[in-house]
Amino acid sequence: MAERPRNPTIIDVAARAGVSKSVVSRVVSGRGSVGEETRRRVLEAAAELGYVVNAVARAMVAHRTYTVGVFVRDAATAFYGHLLAAMQERAAFHGYRVVTTTGSGRFAVADEYRALETLAMLRVEALIVCSGLLPAEKIVPFAERLPTVVAGRPETHRSITSVFCDEEEGGAALADHLAGLGHRQVAVIAVPKTSSVTMAPRTRAMARRLRERGVRVLEIEGTRSEEAGGWAAEVLRHPGITAVMAPSDRHAVDLLEQLHLRGVSVPGDLSVTGYDGIGPLSTPLIGLTSWRQPIELIGSGAIDAVVRLLDGEQPPDHHLALSGSLVTGRTTASLSEMSTEEPPHSGAEAGKH
């Protein structure tokens, strides 16, 4: 019977890279000063050998858990699912493990707070909070006990480190896109801050920039995508509106479905924009015009920040706002390319659906 090949060790990596064992240790742990060329050789050697940090053995020696607790509001959604995957990959690079708790997307604030308490009781060394609902004052008590980072939302509380997409930039850029296409009356599905601290600022930025560009804005308050039928009916009661801005891609797709049921062509009768630009809804088959969040950078940046905090250092940016990018799909068109006829089922007929 053939012998099972042994796992490569830190000594093997040191021999392959031509450096000492202590240098390899500094590179894989992210602690201590190592030249960039040396770091590159060590990482290449580790990849060639298939070396993986033995977190359990390291924890026993150092009397640490090397575990980061992550609360994700709803791992079933594309945004949070991709964010969690990015954090797990980056944590493994630093030699840390991730312990996760997740809600169903319908957790109340009290439920999310209890989920963080559960993570803290598991002896995690740090916390990462990924939720657009839990207010800062509920997170601060944990930040006072453990290194804590908020990921994926524009959190600027002075006691909390955060990494997020610049929501103001994204909302304004999408508004500029529609204004540039000639739209002069636009509906914005506006989300209140009490429902989401991510979607609220982006929809505020949409409405504000549109008005700055001289566009008339109809704000329709909405939170859950299940309300899309009501949004569609409200938009069609205002036949002058030629575009609708949704707070996320999921909201936009549900709105597209409701418009289709009412015989409204997109973008022939109405242009529609989303927000996120990740996951299955970003497929060209749907062709959503959207704002793509840099999800991998948010996830890896959150892990890098928490590792720095664990090392007793402050991250270079206490609140790191990352730029996204405009995705120009086929759900928007210039006003000159759209139908000049009134959309189907407008006016009183819209209320029948």
Rank of each mutant, 00 (worst) to 15 (best):
P141W: 05
T283W: 06
V197D: 06
A59S: 14
I128Q: 09
F107K: 05
G230E: 00
S25P: 02
T332Q: 15
S29E: 06
V19N: 04
E296F: 00
G103T: 12
K352W: 04
D304F: 00
G180C: 03
L310W: 03
R97D: 15
E144I: 05
G180V: 02
L310Y: 04
A136N: 05
K138R: 12
T273Q: 12
Q293Y: 06
R208Y: 02
N7C: 15
L281R: 00
T273Y: 08
A126H: 05
A85R: 07
G18R: 07
V186R: 03
M199E: 11
L255P: 06
E342L: 13
H238V: 10
A243Q: 14
P147C: 13
R153P: 05
Y275Q: 02
Q258W: 08
G32I: 11
T118E: 08
T100M: 06
R330E: 14
D276L: 02
P280H: 07
G170V: 07
A302P: 01
E144N: 09
V70A: 07
E341L: 12
Q88L: 14
P135G: 01
G329H: 02
G171Y: 02
T77F: 04
T283D: 15
E341I: 10
V253D: 14
D311F: 03
G312N: 14
A126Q: 06
A108E: 10
L116N: 00
I278K: 01
R330C: 14
R211I: 09
R4E: 15
A91W: 03
G240F: 09
G180T: 05
G230W: 00
T283L: 12
R4Q: 13
V52H: 08
E296S: 04
V244W: 05
R106G: 11
A305K: 00
A110V: 00
Y113R: 09
L310A: 03
